[in-house]
Computed example of a mutant assay.
Amino acid sequence: MPARGRPVEGAFAFGAAAGLGLLADAVLGDPRRGHPVAAFGRAAGAAERLLWRDDRASGALFTAVCVGGAVTAAALADRTVRGSRRASLALAAAATWTVVGGTSLGREARLVGARLTAGDVPGARARLPHLCGRDPEALDEGHLARAVVESVAENTSDAVVGALVWGALAGVPGLVGFRAVNTLDAMVGHRSPRHLRFGWASARLDDAVGAPGARLTAALAVLAGGAPRRSLGVVRRDAHRHPSPNAGPVEASFAGALGVRLGGTLAYGGRVEHRPVLGAGQRPVEVADIDRAVRLSRRVTWLALAACVAGRAAWGSIQGRRRGGAVC
C-alpha cells in the first residue's frame, strides 16, 4: 500500500537531500557571496540595535522575532515547493549546504595547523579568530593546537550534526531554525556586560536545541574514534564538569578518542576562564592532532547522516503503524 511506503520514502528523500548538501559543502565549501547566514546575522544585528534593553524580557523578544522570522520564511519556502519532488529535494539540499559548515571548519583548522607546522606561531595566532573567539595573543604552540582541537570538536556538533538532527526532525524549517538559534548564541549568548541579560534567552535556547546533536556527536565520536572504551570513560568521568552542557560531552568524547587532554585555562574577550580538564592523565595536544580531529569530525558527519536517516525511517514506520494498524 502507498501509505506504508511513505515513511521510508520520506527518510530516503531527506537522506538524499542532506547527502547532496553535504557533498556540495565538501566540494564547494560555504557560499562565497550572499551567504544566507551572513544575511541573517546582519538582520539580527539590526534587530538587536532596535530591541536591546538590559533585561531578559527584551532578549527573549529579540530571540523570538529572529528565530520565528527565519523559521516562518523557511516554512513558506518549503510549502511553496511541496508539490514538486525535484524542487523539494533541491530546496532541502540547498538549505543543508547553507547551514552546515564542516568543510570550512576543517579548512580553517588545517590552516592553523599548517602555520604551526611551519613554526609560524604569530601566523597561527592571526588565523585562530577565523575558527573561534578566543584571545590568541598569549597562546603558545600547544595551547593553539588545543584551541583548534576543542573548536573542531564543538563545531562538529554546532555546525554539522545538530543541523542534520533538526533537518531529520523538522525538514527545511528545522535546518534553518537550528542555524538561526546557533547564530544568535554566537552573537549575543556570551557573558559580556552588554549581553549578560539580553543574551540569556538565546543562550538557553541554544542549549536546548543543541542537546540532541551534541549527544549524537559524542556517541558517534566514541564509536568512530578507534578507542571506544577510553573515549566512553572520559565522557562518563569528565563531560559533566564542563560549564557547557553540550560542549562537555562532545569535547570529552574527542579527548578520549584522540587520547589527549583538553580543557584548562583559556581567555575570551578579555575574560580568563579556568575550565576543568577533560581526559586527565592523557598527553597534551600536539599539532598533528589537529588533522586527526578533522578526520574524526568527517567520520562523525557521515555517520550522523546515516543515523538521522535511520531514525527518521524508524519514526515514520512507527507513525505509519499507529495510523494504519498492523502491517500485513
Rank of each mutant, 00 (worst) to 15 (best):
residue 2 P to D: 09
residue 3 A to T: 12
residue 4 R to W: 04
residue 5 G to I: 08
residue 13 A to Q: 11
residue 14 F to W: 14
residue 19 G to N: 01
residue 22 L to W: 09
residue 26 A to M: 12
residue 27 V to L: 14
residue 28 L to W: 15
residue 31 P to G: 14
residue 31 P to R: 06
residue 35 H to C: 06
residue 35 H to D: 03
residue 43 A to T: 00
residue 43 A to P: 03
residue 49 R to L: 07
residue 51 L to T: 10
residue 52 W to C: 09
residue 55 D to V: 13
residue 58 S to C: 07
residue 59 G to I: 03
residue 60 A to G: 13
residue 61 L to P: 13
residue 63 T to Q: 10
residue 65 V to N: 09
residue 67 V to F: 05
residue 69 G to D: 00
residue 69 G to T: 01
residue 70 A to Q: 06
residue 70 A to R: 04
residue 73 A to Q: 13
residue 75 A to K: 13
residue 77 A to E: 14
residue 79 R to P: 14
residue 81 V to I: 03
residue 82 R to A: 09
residue 83 G to D: 07
residue 87 A to W: 08
residue 91 L to T: 00
residue 93 A to D: 07
residue 96 T to R: 10
residue 101 G to S: 07
residue 102 G to K: 05
residue 104 S to H: 00
residue 104 S to I: 02
residue 104 S to L: 09
residue 106 G to P: 01
residue 109 A to Q: 14
residue 114 A to I: 12
residue 115 R to T: 11
residue 115 R to Y: 15
residue 118 A to S: 14
residue 119 G to M: 10
residue 123 G to Q: 06
residue 129 P to D: 11
residue 131 L to Q: 12
residue 133 G to D: 00
residue 134 R to M: 02
residue 137 E to P: 04
residue 138 A to D: 12
residue 139 L to F: 09
residue 140 D to F: 04
residue 141 E to P: 06
residue 143 H to E: 15
residue 145 A to W: 08
residue 146 R to K: 13
residue 147 A to S: 15
residue 149 V to D: 01
residue 153 A to H: 07
residue 153 A to C: 04
residue 154 E to L: 06
residue 159 A to G: 15
residue 159 A to P: 15
residue 165 V to H: 10
residue 167 G to R: 08
residue 170 A to S: 14
residue 174 G to Q: 03
residue 177 G to V: 05
residue 177 G to N: 06
residue 178 F to P: 08
residue 179 R to H: 11
residue 184 L to A: 08
residue 184 L to N: 09
residue 185 D to H: 11
residue 186 A to F: 06
residue 188 V to L: 10
residue 191 R to I: 00
residue 193 P to H: 05
residue 196 L to D: 02
residue 201 A to Q: 01
residue 204 R to Q: 11
residue 205 L to S: 04
residue 216 L to G: 05
residue 218 A to I: 08
residue 218 A to W: 05
residue 218 A to D: 00
residue 219 A to L: 02
residue 224 A to P: 14
residue 225 G to A: 02
residue 226 G to Q: 11
residue 228 P to M: 05
residue 234 V to C: 06
residue 236 R to T: 05
residue 237 R to N: 12
residue 238 D to Y: 14
residue 239 A to P: 13
residue 241 R to A: 10
residue 247 A to P: 03
residue 250 V to N: 04
residue 251 E to V: 03
residue 252 A to R: 15
residue 253 S to K: 13
residue 253 S to L: 11
residue 261 R to S: 14
residue 263 G to Q: 13
residue 269 G to P: 15
residue 270 G to Y: 00
residue 271 R to F: 04
residue 272 V to M: 09
residue 275 R to G: 03
residue 275 R to Q: 06
residue 280 A to Y: 09
residue 281 G to C: 05
residue 281 G to I: 04
residue 283 R to D: 04
residue 289 D to E: 00
residue 295 R to M: 15
residue 296 L to T: 01
residue 299 R to W: 06
residue 299 R to P: 07
residue 300 V to Q: 03
residue 300 V to K: 09
residue 302 W to C: 03
residue 303 L to N: 08
residue 304 A to G: 00
residue 305 L to N: 15
residue 307 A to E: 08
residue 307 A to Q: 08
residue 307 A to I: 07
residue 308 C to T: 03
residue 316 G to T: 03
residue 321 R to W: 14
residue 321 R to K: 11
residue 322 R to V: 00
residue 325 G to M: 14
